[in-house]
Amino acid sequence: MLNSKSKHYLYAVFGYIVISAVSYILLNQFGAPFVAHQPLVKDASATDRFWDLQAAALWGLILIGIIVIITRSYRNKQLNSPDRVSSKKEIFLLLGYMVFAQLLGLGIGKLFDFHAISFHLAGSIYGNHGKIMLSEMLVWSCYNFIMYVVLPLVYFISKKGYTLSQLNIISNKNILRDMTVIIIILIIESIVQLEGLSDALLNLSPRQIIFGGFMAFIFNLFGTAIPTAVFLFAILYPRFKAVTNSAVTPIILGGLTYTALHFFDSWMVFSSSGAFLASLSALFMQYFMPGVVKSVLTDRTGNPWVHMWAYHVFVPHVIIDTPHFVDSFNIQ
């Protein structure tokens, strides 16, 4: 007989296979309208894109195995969370707030004639790779930082009486041990992304790498990396663990929530039901596994900041997005 943990693993694998099969059908039926906007893959078919995403998911599983191995000696790594009843109430509050913030970001983007404000700046991963105005970058990064970092912390500290330690913002974990994990994963993932995703960074001049990389780092740090670390992994994820009391379910929920936070990314196409379904399929395959990897890093280390340095702000955003910032700022 399988134990509860094994059953959860099997359910997760089966669910992913089913969703992938449906995604394959949808992408082949309706095409991949978002792909044409990315110069690197403008001639790729929907099938090519599907298998590229599946390869990325397979690498995610391998990376999870590496994370488990290098954190096997971790002990007493639990994140702080309230009791189960309080956690359940706060989960609904946080998820409702997330939907509101995403819809408001859509509205503000339209108001200023920008792209919708989601968790990736327009031009990141897919979408419009033309120049993005500085004003749009500033609005995007400031909005996400205020909505997903400042306001949640103000509410939970001033209204609910939590401390920064109770919200996992301040970590008393072993810093040297966490730095080891960060460095190992950062090196491995940097090599993989430069070899398998894009080596455009290596074609830039030293000046472009320095100044473009700095801009990519700063804007993505405040626009997506810190918001993800604080809202999802410091506050929401520990409450998933408290409510589910499971080793697997919180990780799955972390992956799904991370996916939902990118719902209005600029490459999503809503022009028809077919285009939307194809985009939705790619959304899941693009972000679910990275969200799972971030969840595992957080779960294994008990520190919501580890994933940010090891697997977010530098890779992919500095490595992949620097050419985009070089182009937008016309850095010679």
Rank of each mutant, 00 (worst) to 15 (best):
T47Q: 10
V99C: 08
F288H: 08
Y287Q: 10
D113P: 04
Y143P: 01
G31L: 08
P82G: 10
T163I: 04
M215A: 15
L256Y: 12
Y74Q: 10
V68N: 11
S20H: 04
L94G: 10
I252Q: 07
T244L: 14
V181T: 10
V315Y: 09
R207F: 14
S45Q: 06
V318D: 00
I331Y: 14
L297K: 01
R177Q: 12
F270D: 01
I331R: 10
N172R: 09
A55V: 05
I69K: 11
N203T: 09
Q286I: 06
H120A: 14
Y162H: 10
I188G: 13
V293H: 03
Y74L: 06
S190T: 15
F156M: 11
T249D: 00
Y148M: 12
S141H: 01
L167G: 05
C142T: 15
S158F: 11
M308F: 02
G213K: 15
Q78L: 09
N76D: 15
I184L: 09
V293F: 05
Q29Y: 07
Q102H: 09
I17R: 01
A225N: 01
V315L: 11
S279I: 07
N28I: 02
F325S: 12
N3C: 09
L138I: 14
H8N: 14
Y9G: 04
L104V: 12
Y258L: 08
I125Y: 04
S171N: 09
Q102A: 13
R177M: 07
G254C: 11
R300N: 01
M147N: 04
Q208P: 09
F264K: 00
D83C: 04
I319S: 09
P323V: 13
A282G: 03
V243G: 03
D265N: 14
W59R: 15
I184M: 06
A225G: 00
L111F: 06
M137R: 14
H8R: 15
R239L: 08
R207D: 02
V181P: 05
V181M: 05
V85E: 13
H115R: 05
E189K: 12
L95S: 08
I252V: 15
G212A: 15
W51I: 07
S158V: 09
M137T: 00
M308E: 01
Y311L: 03
S171Y: 03
F119Q: 07
G274I: 08
Q166V: 02
S271M: 05
S135Q: 08
I226K: 00
D327T: 14
